[in-house]
Computed example of a mutant assay.
Amino acid sequence: MKKLVSIFLLTVLVVAGSHKVEAAGFKDVTKDHFAYDAVMWAAEYEIIDGYSNGTFKPNATITEQQFAKLLANYYELEETYDELKKQTPAANWSDDFYNRLASYGVPLNGYFDNNIRGTAVKRGVVAQAIAHLAEGKRGLDESIQFLLDYYISTGQNPKYENRDLQKFFGISNNMTRAQVVTLLHRMDSSNFYDISEDADEIFQNASNTSINTRAINAQNQLDKKMQLTTVGKSPWAGSYSFYYKWGKGSTDYNRRDAIISNASSKSFDISMTTNDGLEFGSVEGTATITASKKAVMNKSSNGNRCVMEFDLLNNALKVTEVDCSAERGEGTNFSGTLKKQ
């Protein structure tokens, strides 16, 4: 189906000239970015959209609700009249996407909790969700192997290849927005458009199962290592971002993004990305809370020295990098004040 659409859109682009191509672009996704083709493809088919400032934030950590939107859009999942009865009843922009995904039984964590939706989605969850729609109900290992067999993913930690499948894939690591779009682009290249029989059977719902029950079953399909049932109400928890455009060039900008999750009274997990034009860096780790509004991280989840200090401000996070050169691109740093999203 998408191939036929591609021919039609190509014709439109030729007739319309260059304006359509420019409209589909993002000023922070340059032609030398590894995901340039994937992002342009996803924008063309309206799988993604960007931010009001004309950026896509390709190197920002993707949240589960952002992933849910991309996945629902890629498969063009049908809308449902049923609505989830959430534990956090406030309306959320991702409600429609989660309602659709629940109706197909897609394994995700955030069906009932807006806070969980806003946390970084793990690679293992991404693998199981994609495999469910493409191949049918699969365990974690089978889902990973599916992505590897069809070169949708090439893994992340080569030293574990043929030794430990889950560590090779990096099931507990976060993903960037560009990385997820790249996976979907590879799905498209391998002609994975059709919804699996398992997912379609859940959607047809011959047994008249409620959407909440289907969502619970979907959550339980996730491997135990991937399940997240609650997010602490710590004032630290949330997503933070900073963007500054200092020139007219496509790389004349600075960007910082951070997601804090699994926050307790003693510590929290943090995932940060930094992009200063063409230079990019990322880090994940656990910070220790040293005072009510102060915390420090001494090493990354990779075991490298990475000292960063955090100050919790009013709806903002101040980050001071002491030394994290082993975890970032040369020419970047993690320091900055990020606004809570």
Rank of each mutant, 00 (worst) to 15 (best):
T61S: 13
T61L: 13
I62H: 04
I62T: 04
T63W: 05
E64A: 02
E64Q: 04
E64T: 00
K69H: 13
K69E: 14
K69T: 13
L71G: 09
Y75W: 08
Y75D: 14
E79Q: 10
E79V: 02
E79G: 11
T80H: 05
Y81A: 03
Y81F: 12
D82Q: 12
L84D: 08
L84V: 01
L84G: 04
L84H: 09
K85G: 05
Q87N: 15
Q87S: 13
Q87T: 12
T88C: 07
T88L: 04
T88Q: 12
T88P: 04
P89C: 03
A90Y: 12
A90K: 09
A90D: 15
N92F: 09
W93V: 03
S94H: 02
D95M: 06
D95S: 07
D96T: 13
D96H: 11
R100W: 11
R100L: 09
A102N: 05
S103Y: 10
Y104R: 01
Y111H: 02
Y111E: 06
F112Y: 09
F112A: 01
D113N: 10
R117H: 11
R117D: 10
A120E: 11
A120F: 00
V121R: 01
V121P: 14
V121I: 15
K122F: 13
R123S: 14
R123I: 11
G124H: 08
V126H: 07
V126S: 05
I130R: 05
I130E: 03
I130L: 12
H132Q: 15
L133R: 05
A134R: 00
E135G: 12
G136K: 00
K137T: 12
G139E: 13
L140Y: 13
D141A: 08
I144G: 14
I144Q: 06
F146C: 05
L148C: 05
L148N: 05
Y151C: 07
Y151M: 07
I152M: 12
S153L: 07
S153H: 06
T154F: 12
T154Q: 13
G155Y: 07
Q156V: 09
Q156T: 14
N157Q: 14
P158L: 08
